[in-house]
Amino acid sequence: ELSQEQQALLNYIVDAYNKHRIPPDQAKKLLQEQFNAEENFQLLTEMATSHVQVLVEFTKNIPGFQSLDHEDQIALLKGSAVEAMFLRSAQVFTRKLPQGHTEVLEDRIRKSGISEEFITPMFNFYKSIGELQMLQEEHALLTAITILTPDRPYVRDQQAVEGLQETMLEVLRKFCKLQHPQEAQHFARLLGRLTELRTLNHHHAEMLTSWRMS
């Protein structure tokens, strides 16, 4: 069972996750029809920017994060922003969107000048996330766990970060046991997505350079 304290932590994280999201009017822009590659590039850049802002607001609510060394806070956010962005955007592709919206989004990304070699791993990731039928608590916790990754570049007090991550992992482990009693591997599969995210992180860096050049 989740202890009272763990349950309170989970509720708090999920509230923060739901409260800090991309403003609906901006998200709606993604679904309008008539953009060309240049405008798609601009739109996706704006979306990425506001996603980073949303991520920081969410992260401020992770208990203990703000008591970390200030530069470590920046190193953690800088190191995890891309992964958190893919994790969150995966949710968009797996939530039951009204008819056709997913296709419009996918089409927009395919037609924004990003080369195929980066698009395929991205949509494979979205598919593998979709197969897990993740609950919002799992999305919120996995995002927090991704951000609290101790071995990001430039993080000095790795032990402090590890302590916070351990707490989150324990809550997620218990939550998975409670919510997916018949699926013993569910927790392990969720953590497996984190490794997949790291390869996406690497792809993303290359994708940006090639995108800028084209």
Binding site: T45, E46, A48, T49, S50, V52, Q53, V56, E57, K60, H70, Q73, I74, L77, K78, A81
Partner: peptide, 21 residues
């Protein structure tokens, strides 16, 4: 606009909590 700031600048600004301006 924020979108042509570097990633670290956006993070520092947001952490400082003055994203409104």
């Amino acid at each position: 606009p924020a979108s042509n700031l570097g990633l670290e600048d956006i993070i520092r600004k947001a952490l400082m909590g003055n994203m409104e301006d």
